[in-house]
């Protein structure tokens, strides 16, 4: 299945891209997706789908648009 991934802020420099579509196996979890794009697991982050937070073990669906952001604190 295909997942749209958008990386926000400095995460894009860590992973080497800011936005792209990624092919993953069915039943891929959020955590597995992050492994795939090589973002450090220890780095504090928030993952959202359609503006709502998703948990590390949430299973993704074909066509999901996922945004991964550092934990911002509003300047």
């Amino acid at each position: 299945m295909k997942i749209g991934v958008k990386l926000i802020g400095p995460l894009m420099y860590e992973a080497g891209f800011s936005e792209k579509e990624i092919e993953v196996p069915d039943a891929t979890t959020t955590d597995a997706l992050l492994d795939r794009i090589m973002i450090s697991k220890t780095r504090p982050k928030i993952v959202t789908r359609n503006g709502k937070a998703v948990a590390p073990d949430d299973v993704l669906k074909d066509g999901d648009k996922i945004a991964v952001s550092p934990i911002y604190s509003g300047g």
Binding site: I8, G9, P10, E14, I46, A67, S69, P70, Y72, G75
Partner: peptide
């Protein structure tokens, strides 16, 4: 962490999302 590559402006796309 690379924070100052975008400094505070990284939050713009988060807010948009």
């Amino acid at each position: 962490t690379g924070w100052s590559k975008q400094s505070t402006t990284g939050v713009l796309q988060f807010c948009n999302e």
